[in-house]
Design a protein around this nucleic acid. Sequence first.
DNA 1: ATGTCTAATAAAATCGATTTTTTATTTGCA
DNA 2: TGCAAATAAAAAATCGATTTTATTAGACAT
Lengths: 222, 222
Amino acid sequence: MNINLTPSQTPSEGSATKSAYKRLRELILTGDLAPGEKLKIDGLRDVLGTGASPIREALNLLVSDQLVVRHEQRGFRAAGTSRQDFDEILKLRCSLERMALRESIENATDEWIEELVVVHHRMTRLQAERSAEFEVQHKIFHMTLLSHATSPHLLRFCSQLYDLNIRYRYLAGRSSDYKGRKVDDEHRQILDAVMAKGMDLADTLLVSHYERTGAFLKDYID
Amino acid sequence: MNINLTPSQTPSEGSATKSAYKRLRELILTGDLAPGEKLKIDGLRDVLGTGASPIREALNLLVSDQLVVRHEQRGFRAAGTSRQDFDEILKLRCSLERMALRESIENATDEWIEELVVVHHRMTRLQAERSAEFEVQHKIFHMTLLSHATSPHLLRFCSQLYDLNIRYRYLAGRSSDYKGRKVDDEHRQILDAVMAKGMDLADTLLVSHYERTGAFLKDYID
DNA sequence: ATGTCTAATAAAATCGATTTTTTATTTGCA
DNA sequence: TGCAAATAAAAAATCGATTTTATTAGACAT
């Protein structure tokens, strides 16, 4: 653990559980809490500045996201990572997102296309910086692509896998100079294909977008 | 709520959280706790004979399973049901289990086939009664079919959807005389196809197995 | 040295009480 | 009568302390 922030400064925002959840989630996604690391309640109390109950609650919620694993009577750990896990997530994401994207395009509406354009614009604007804000918009863009599929459960799975994957991105980013990858062209092409309702083209582009990023990251994993 | 059991008799088995989790899960799956029903901590304390903390913990774990929904600052509810949700789960299950089954067959080993035969036998033996024990074996059979796929995440999704679906089965079973459906032939055929490594046949049979059950249940939903 | 039993320590799990928030009920007013 | 503010009741969230369980460290024997 390697944390240098003062105990949660945002005082009166939502419940203690919620802010603990958000903070822990972030710490795990970014790798500040390392894969496999033991998450001791007492230790986290100092970091999060709150009692044991909200932390426990937050930890249990993170189990839903597969970011934390619970060991019966012996506490919690940040979920582990492995090359195998990374590959698996990549493959599964390609399959599931393809399904969702095709459905989405089938159900396309003008409003949806407009939403996509806006969301894409917002993301592009932040492209250069690779800031946290860019990451937020990037996820929104990808999830909006899928958002017109009619299956909430499928979307939930995609969202979950997205987060698990982005964790590897962060981990790669910190142990190396993973940066250079240019993705704006690929996003643009996907958007264009979707707007033209070219289902086959769109899903091919989306999958190869993921596969390229995956290949790029592979070198930095494990 | 309509529960007539004495507070958890099994005293020293595992943690309070674990038994609360198992019990609540069962109550929700079977419909003893109805879809959408408010789950008040205090109320559950009487039923489960334990304090608020383990109940809270169990409830949070059930959120992972999508059997309970959490409403920020206003407690928990049993997840709702709807015709739409039922249809969606059915479709998604067909897609995902097909993927998993194909992978499973690709990676087939002799040991796996033997395991399947045993598991199928155990299930068949209990066929007549439709007991709780049959339900357990039935899930084991279906999950074993998929178990040689190399994607734990995919298997987790399948397992989750299985449980969500079986809940509808129970709900149908109680509001009607859903019983008659004969499924042993279908299971046998699937097993045979898998043993012959007939991937296309196997997944077709599996999907139509689900679709038939789905069609059968539809009348009893909502 | 290696392994097992026991004692001490650390951590997780749970409890009971308190605080905060939400929901229901009553009261006052147009 | 209908609506809104104020109050009362209920429930959720959180806390601090206690109990239980797991982990570590030490003593002893092989």
